[in-house]
Nucleic acid binder design. Structure first.
Length: 775
DNA sequence: GAGCACTGC
C-alpha cells in the first residue's frame, strides 16, 4: 500500500510562498522561520507599524511550487528541550527553532492546555485558535510527553494475551499537503527530522500513497480519510492516547463522521480500551463552536452523572483590523457595482495595496477582466495603472501564479478577480482591499432526483468574515461588501456542512462497514434528512452492499475497503466475476475517472483546438467516455519515449495523469490482496493493443452494475429521457458522445447548471439496462 | 457547443 516515492506527485499548487517567514498551504500558515536565518523571524506586528512593503519590492514572492522545505543539514537537536521549562532559559545561543515557537501566540497557553487535557474527566477540549496561532504544530508537541500519553499493556475482555493501548497522538487534517508538511515541520522541531533514512523518530504521517511512520512515532499526522480507514481495522483506536481533530470548522463529510465515531468511543464501552481513556482535542479556526460543544457536551450529560465535560480554550491569532463598508441599498447589477467599486478604490485609496474581489465563477471573472482592461486604457497618465488578474481553480498553475506575483510595472495596482479559491485555499499577498459580491457557486446533491446542482447562492456570515479577513493579512485593510448591512445580517451563520450537501451513499457505507446497525441513530453534529439516508440504503442494497435485512454483505465490506465511491466499488467487483473478467481494464478506466479534475484539459483557442483534437483522435472511442479514458490510460502506460510530450500534444493534464497511474497501482495491489486479481500484471510499458469491441462491451456492462440508475433513452424528438425520473438530459459538450444519437446512454455524473447535463457518457443498448436492473 | 468552489480513502 505504501508508495514511498510518491511525494513528488503531491499536489503543489496550493502551496504559496507568503512572506519570508511563512508559507500558506491549504489555508494554513506555516512558519518556516526555523529554516531560515534567525533575522527573518521577526514578529509580524512589528513589521506592520512601519509597513513599507510594496508589491514591487517583494521580488521573492512567488508560489514555491516544487520545493518542499528541506530541513537544514544539521537539524538542531532539542528533543529534551521541547518539554522542559526552557521558556525562561533565554540564553545567548538560543535555538532559533525554539525561539520561533516561543513567539507563537499558543506558546503562552501550553501549561493551560496541558492542565486541562490532563484533568480527569475532561475528555474533550475545544481549542479556538485564529490563523497563525500555531495550534497545529504546537498542541501535539505540548502533549506527547504527558504521563497519560504513555503506552499501556492491558488485558481486554474475552482475550487471553495482553495488548497495548495508547502511546500515540493522532492529528487529522482535511488535506494531504497540510498533513505531510506539518509532519515535516514538527519532526524538525521535535529533533527527529523525517525523510533522512532514519529508522526511528517522534513524528510521522500517513496519507494516501504516502506513509512515513518511523519506529517510535508519538505524533502522527493523518488526513481525515486515512483515520476513517484505520477505524475499520481498529474500531477503538487503541493505538492512540489522544486524537486531535484540526480544522473542524471546514466541516468536511469525513470530519463529521469522525466526530460521530469519537463520540461513540468516548462514551461507549471503556473496557475495549482496557479502561485507558481517549482524549479528544477539537481545533477550530472560527469561533462558531456551539454545535461542537453541544454535540460532545450532550454526550457527556447522557453518559456521565455530571454535566458537560467539554472545555473551551480561545487563542488569539495575528490579524490586523479590517474596516467593513456596506452598500446603502441593494445593488441592481452586481457586475456593474463591482466595476464601479474597483475604480473608486483605485482612484481614492493609496498605493501600495492590491484589490482582491470575490466573484461567482469563471464566466463573471472573464467578463470583469475584459471590462477592467477596457477601462484601464482610459486612465489619465497621472493616475496609477491598474491590472486585472484572474484566479480560479480551472486555470493552469502558471496562470494562477500571476495572481501571487506583484504587478510587473511600477505604480500599478493589481486587481485579483477570484472565486472562493482565495477564501481559504490560497493567500494572495499584498492585498489591502477586498470587494465581496456576497455569492459563491455551491454544489448541492438532490437525493430525490439523484442529481447535483451547481448554482450561485448567497454566502454565509462566516464566509463573509473570512473574505474580509483577507484584507488584514499584512496591515489594516478595508472590505467593501456589495450588499447592505441588513443583507449581511440575514445571511446564514455558517455554510451548510458537506454532509447536508452531498450524497450520503459513501457515508452510510462507512457506518455500516464499521458496525453501525442503525445509521439513523448514529450521532452526527448535523443529521441528513431521513429520506436522504433511506435513498442511500436502497441504493446500497441495489449495489449488493447490503443484504435484505440491511446488514452489510461481504461485497459491501470489500467495497468499503476500497478508496472508491460505492458504485465504482460495485463496478470493480462485477469486473472480477467470471461473466465479465475485465478487472485490469476497469481499473484503467476508474483510475482516470477518479484522478481529480478531468485529465482532458479544455482547449480555449480555436486553432489550437483543431490540432489537439487531431492528436486526441487516437484515444477517443465511439463507445463513449469510459472506453476513451481506458484507452488513454493504456496508451499512456505504453508510451515509452516521452510521456510529458505525449500529454502536452493531447492537452492531457500531466499531474492528473500521474495521479491516475498512482491510483492504478494502488487499485491493482488492493485487488490482488482482495483476490479480485489472481496475479500482478506485467510492469509497464507493455505494447498497446486496442481494446476489442467485445471487451469494451464487457467493461461498459460492468459499469452498468453500478450505474444502471443513471441511464437515459433516446426519445422520438431526439432528446434523452432518464429511465429513473423521466427527466430530459443533454449530453455535456465535454463528452466524446456530445451531439450523437444512440438508442440509450449511461452517464456517471448528472449535474444541473443552466441545463440538465449528463457527463462521462457511454453508448449502451436498451436491453442491457433491464439486464443490469433485473439481476 | 458548455463555461464549474474545494477536498479525500
Amino acid at each position: 500500500m505504501a508508495a514511498p516515492n510518491s511525494t513528488e506527485h503531491a499536489p503543489k499548487r496550493r502551496k504559496v510562498r507568503q512572506d519570508s517567514g511563512s508559507v500558506t498551504i491549504g489555508g494554513k500558515v506555516i512558519s518556516v522561520a526555523g529554516y531560515l536565518s534567525s533575522s527573518s523571524s521577526k514578529p509580524k506586528q512589528a513589521e506592520a507599524s512601519n509597513l513599507k512593503s510594496t508589491p514591487s519590492n517583494d521580488s521573492q514572492e512567488q508560489p514555491s511550487q516544487a520545493t518542499p522545505q528541506q530541513p537544514p543539514k544539521s537539524a538542531p537537536r532539542e528533543r529534551n528541550e521541547t518539554h522542559s521549562k526552557s521558556r525562561n532559559a533565554g540564553g545567548a545561543k538560543e535555538n532559533p527553532l525554539l525561539k520561533a515557537r516561543r513567539e507563537l501566540p499558543i506558546w503562552q497557553h501550553q501549561d493551560e492546555i496541558r492542565t486541562v487535557v490532563k484533568r480527569a474527566g475532561t475528555d474533550v477540549i475545544v481549542i479556538v485558535g485564529e490563523t497563525g496561532s500555531g495550534k497545529s504544530t504546537q498542541v501535539p508537541q505540548f502533549l506527547y510527553q504527558e504521563p497519560w500519553c504513555k503506552r499501556h499493556k492491558v488485558k481486554l475482555p474475552g482475550r487471553q494475551e495482553e495488548v497495548y493501548v495508547g502511546g500515540m497522538i493522532a492529528i487529522t487534517q482535511p488535506r494531504r499537503v497540510a498533513a505531510t508538511t506539518l509532519a515535516q515541520r514538527v519532526s524538525i522541531e521535535a529533533g527527529t527530522p523525517l525523510g533522512k533514512g532514519r529508522p526511528d523518530g517522534l513524528v510521522g504521517y500517513s496519507v494516501r500513497f504516502d506513509h512515513q511512520v518511523p519506529k517510535g512515532t508519538r505524533i502522527k499526522f493523518l488526513t481525515e480519510g486515512t483515520l476513517l480507514q484505520e477505524l475499520l481495522r481498529d474500531p477503538y483506536l487503541r493505538q492512540y492516547s489522544a486524537v486531535v481533530i484540526d480544522e473542524i470548522h471546514e466541516r468536511s463529510l469525513d470530519v463529521d463522521l469522525l466526530a460521530g465515531f469519537l463520540k461513540q468511543i468516548l462514551f461507549g464501552d471503556q473496557t475495549q480500551r482496557g479502561g485507558i481513556p481517549l482524549k479528544v482535542i477539537i481545533m477550530s479556526a472560527t469561533a462558531e463552536v456551539g454545535v461542537i460543544q453541544e454535540f460532545f457536551g450532550r454526550a457527556a450529560a447522557e453518559g456521565r452523572e455530571k454535566g458537560s465535560n467539554v472545555e473551551l480554550l480561545r487563542i488569539k491569532g495575528r490579524q490586523f483590523p479590517v474596516t467593513i463598508l456596506y452598500e446603502p441599498r441593494p445593488v441592481p447589477d452586481l457586475q456593474d457595482a463591482l466595476l464601479k467599486k474597483i475604480f473608486k478604490v483605485h482612484v481614492e485609496e493609496p498605493l501600495p495595496g492590491d484589490i482582491l474581489a470575490f466573484l461567482n465563477g469563471q464566466e463573471d471573472i472573464e467578463a470583469a477582466q475584459r471590462l477592467i482592461e477596457e477601462y484601464a486604457t482610459t486612465l489619465a497618465s497621472n493616475v496609477p495603472k491598474i491590472v486585472a488578474v484572474p484566479l480560479y481553480g480551472q486555470l493552469s498553475i502558471e496562470a494562477q501564479s500571476v495572481a501571487f506575483r506583484p504587478a510587473k510595472t511600477p505604480r500599478t495596482r493589481k486587481v485579483v478577480l477570484a472565486t472562493n479559491i482565495a477564501e481559504t485555499s490560497v493567500t494572495v499577498p499584498g492585498v489591502r482591499y477586498v470587494i465581496d459580491c456576497g455569492k459563491a457557486k455551491v454544489k448541492q446533491y438532490r437525493p430525490r432526483l439523484g442529481m447535483e446542482s451547481l448554482l450561485a447562492k448567497p454566502i454565509s456570515k462566516s464566509s463573509a468574515v473570512q473574505r474580509a479577513g483577507r484584507a488584514g493579512r499584512e496591515g489594516p485593510g478595508k472590505c467593501f461588501r456589495l450588499y447592505t448591512e441588513d443583507a449581511f445580517n440575514s445571511l446564514q451563520d455558517s455554510d451548510l456542512p458537506e454532509i447536508l450537501r452531498n450524497d450520503v451513499l459513501g457515508a452510510v457505507l462507512t457506518m455500516k462497514a464499521r458496525g453501525i446497525q442503525d445509521v439513523m441513530a448514529f450521532p452526527l453534529m448535523d443529521a441528513p434528512e431521513p429520506a436522504a439516508i433511506e435513498m442511500a440504503l436502497l441504493h446500497l442494497h441495489f449495489l449488493g452492499a447490503l443484504a435484505d435485512d440491511g446488514t452489510i454483505t461481504a461485497a459491501g465490506q470489500t467495497m468499503a475497503r476500497f478508496p472508491l465511491s460505492a458504485p465504482l466499488g460495485a463496478v470493480l467487483l462485477a469486473a472480477a466475476g467470471p461473466e465479465f473478467d475485465c478487472v485490469l481494464e476497469v481499473i484503467d478506466a476508474i483510475s482516470c475517472l477518479t484522478s481529480g479534475d478531468d485529465i482532458f484539459m479544455h482547449v480555449h483557442s480555436e486553432e489550437g483546438q483543431e490540432e489537439v483534437e487531431a492528436y486526441r483522435k487516437d484515444v477517443q472511442r465511439r463507445e463513449g467516455d469510459i472506453i476513451t479514458y481506458l484507452t488513454t490510460m493504456q496508451m499512456y502506460a505504453a508510451e515509452n519515449s516521452d510521456r510529458i510530450d505525449w500529454c502536452k500534444k493531447r492537452k492531457i493534464n500531466i499531474r492528473n495523469m500521474k495521479q491516475a497511474l498512482n491510483i492504478r497501482r494502488q487499485l491493482r495491489g488492493m485487488c490482488l490482496k482482495e483476490k479480485l486479481l489472481s496475479e500482478m500484471p506485467p510492469p509497464d510499458p507493455q505494447p498497446f493493443t486496442p481494446l476489442s469491441p467485445e471487451k469494451a462491451e464487457s467493461v461498459i456492462k460492468c459499469f452498468l452494475r453500478g450505474f444502471a440508475m443513471r441511464t437515459a433513452m433516446l426519445a422520438p424528438d431526439g432528446s434523452f429521457v432518464t429511465v429513473h425520473g423521466k427527466h430530459v438530459v443533454a449530453i455535456h459538450p465535454s463528452s466524446v458522445m456530445h451531439g450523437q444519437k444512440k438508442e440509450a446512454i449511461m452517464f456517471l455524473e448528472h449535474v444541473y447548471t443552466n441545463k440538465n447535463y449528463a457527463k462521462k457518457v457511454s453508448a449502451i443498448q436498451a436491453t442491457w439496462i433491464a439486464e443490469a436492473l433485473g439481476r
